[in-house]
């Protein structure tokens, strides 16, 4: 099913207005971060600090351009992935030991320190002004101004398509199920001889890498890396979208992210003083009545347990 959507989007994109394509690009890129958050949620962990990996990807791209002169889009995207993953592999060693509220708050604290550092070391990071990111090249080729948006869109689309299909496999794999198992009953996993912390660590690093990848794609689209990427409200936004879209199915983050970006930009235009009200209300409704996210509505229509007993619904 996802390939049909990808194809549709790919065909339709050049026909859409520039800002729609831009919004879609950004939404797709952010969906990568949300996917990572969603994976952690499957393991029962919520991080309020993934903005730091998102920022790592964005600033990683900015530095690579500035210091090393790298302009190739795909290379930069991979660099973002590496930046996020590397930071997560370091911090994850500490964080994988915690759960619940403490995991959430510790992530928050660390991300706020990253934010503070980005602000403070202004002679390196540009402080509140951030760092500018110039146009990327595609295979050495600089797209003409009119096609730039579309080029970035295809990049985002391509990356997302690959990642989503990999995530699709992960979710059905032993590791994917182990993640759900340790959310349900960590003790039992230990009593089966399974690795709890190793699994959490791996998923954490993966989510950090995804956040970095998302950050790099967004910054290419937006052209500017700012400390706010690491701020707690940005991290919170990723968590919200994960809840909205639902993290039970890999298309949840995708649909949630796209919906979110569009609703936000409309709501803001219509009435900037009520966007947060709307957001808060939507979030409250989802938490109270639809904790598995909006995609679960789609899933319920498709839901069936086939012969071998595959549960489509995630644990709630």
């Amino acid at each position: 099913m996802q390939w049909a959507i990808v194809l549709l989007l790919a065909i339709v994109a050049p026909l859409l207005p520039g800002w729609t394509v831009f919004l879609l690009s950004v939404a797709l890129a952010k969906a990568l971060v949300v996917l990572g958050i969603g994976l952690l949620m499957r393991g029962g962990l919520v991080s309020f600090g993934h903005g730091m990996y998102y920022a790592a990807g964005a600033y990683g791209v900015a530095f690579a351009m500035k210091l090393m002169g790298i302009r190739e889009a795909l290379v930069l995207a991979v660099l973002g992935l590496v930046a996020g993953g590397l930071l997560a592999s370091v911090l994850g060693m500490l964080l994988a030991r915690y759960r619940g509220l403490f995991f959430a708050m510790l992530n928050l604290a660390l991300s706020m320190m990253v934010y503070g550092a980005l602000l403070k070391f202004y002679w390196v990071t540009g402080g509140t002004d951030g760092m500018a990111v110039r146009q990327a090249t595609f295979g050495g080729f600089v797209p003409p101004a009119g096609l730039l948006r579309v080029a970035y869109f295809y990049l985002s689309l391509g990356v997302v398509a690959i990642v989503v299909s990999m995530a699709h496999r992960l979710v059905r794999s032993p590791m994917g199920y182990l993640l759900r198992a340790l959310r349900d009953n960590e003790v039992r996993v230990n009593y089966m001889g399974g690795w709890v912390e190793q699994t959490i660590y791996r998923v954490y690093v993966l989510s950090g890498g995804l956040a970095g990848l998302g950050g790099s794609l967004v910054v290419l689209n937006v052209g500017h890396a700012v400390p706010d990427f690491a701020y707690w409200s940005q991290s919170g936004e990723f968590v919200f979208v994960a809840l909205f879209g639902g993290y039970g199915h890999v298309l949840g983050p995708l649909s949630g992210s796209i919906l979110f970006e569009f609703v936000r930009s409309y709501a803001y235009k219509v009435s900037p003083y009520t966007w947060q009200l709307l957001l808060g209300a939507m979030l409250a409704l989802v938490i109270l009545f639809l904790p598995e996210g909006l995609w679960s509505l789609v899933e319920r229509r498709m839901a069936r347990r086939d012969r071998w007993g595959w549960s489509w619904r995630p644990s709630s």
Binding site: L170, R172, S173, P174, M175, Y177, L178, G193, W195, T199
Partner: peptide
């Protein structure tokens, strides 16, 4: 899967 030591696999289905 855990018994077989293959719980870390992420590319093949359970």
């Amino acid at each position: 899967a855990i018994r077989a030591g293959r719980s870390g696999e992420f590319w093949r289905p359970l």
